[in-house]
């Protein structure tokens, strides 16, 4: 739906207004090699044929692949805190949004919701075991923000001239591999007049990631390997201490 809207805007925008948008990425393939540092992506672009002096705004959104996530709620049962209810939801594994100004100043809530701009406007496909899904989504957003996976940066779009803009998007090491999309929206007087969507791919190559992949793709072999490693170390220690005990 969201993609469709973006596509629709892209098709109709040039006809509606003379203004257009060109944007690009520093790379379309991102490899994260260190688990500590993560990586960074630069989104840049140009507003074409700026017309007049109207207020113009740029919003940049980066979305990771959707993932099924489970949030559980603890309740006090017989004096103990036990997981008692849960909600499962599909939400992007990574989400970054920023604009030239705070989002609330750029457009109406209705418009922001339609394009899912902002952490409070993410639409989740939720099944909660007890009615109200909102606290679960809010808790998930909190957890993802703490992990650096959901970012809403205020006014991080740098205008280098009247028409040139640039955004640095931090990609933490914990992001899953897969296809991501960068969406750039051009707003004029609170309405989207142009939009562009560019895909890019994230891959991970660090040692820790290779261990993770090994454990998940060949779990049995991984288990055997881990046991052999532990046993070999235990055995080696015998030789080390043979003369000292």
């Amino acid at each position: 739906m969201r993609m469709l809207l973006a596509a629709l805007v892209m098709l109709t925008a040039p006809a509606l207004a003379e203004e257009g948008l060109t944007s690009g990425l520093s790379q379309d393939y991102l490899q994260i090699t260190s688990t500590f540092a993560g990586s960074e992506l630069t989104v840049f672009g140009d507003v074409e044929n700026p017309a007049g002096q109207e207020t113009r705004d740029i919003v940049v959104v980066v979305r990771g692949p959707d993932a099924l996530m489970t949030v559980r709620r603890k309740d006090r049962i017989a004096g103990l805190w036990i997981n008692n209810a849960r909600a499962k939801m599909w939400l992007p594994a990574y989400y970054f949004v920023t604009a030239t100004r705070p989002l609330g100043d750029i457009a109406e809530g209705e418009t922001l919701r339609r394009y899912e701009l902002g952490l409070n406007d993410l639409r989740a496909d939720v099944t909660a075991s007890d009615g109200d899904a909102r606290p679960y989504i809010a808790s998930l957003v909190r957890a993802q923000k703490r992990a650096g996976l959901y970012i809403q940066a205020d006014s991080a779009v740098e205008m280098q001239s009247a028409t040139l803009f640039r955004v640095h998007v931090p990609i933490p090491a914990a992001v899953p591999r897969g296809s991501y999309t960068v969406e750039v929206y051009l707003f004029r007087d609170g309405d989207v007049v142009a939009a562009q969507s560019t895909p890019f791919y994230v891959d991970q190559a660090g040692f820790e990631r290779r261990v993770f992949e090994f454990a998940h793709t060949k779990p049995f072999t991984y288990g055997v390997f881990t046991v052999l490693m532990a046993v070999a170390l235990g055995w080696a220690s015998m030789f080390l201490f043979r003369n000292r005990v």
Partner: peptide
Amino acid sequence: TTILHAADNYTVDTLLALILVI
């Protein structure tokens, strides 16, 4: 137990085990 947990639950951390064994 280690092998079965690795195969069923993906919960064996080699690096953690390595440090603990040493």
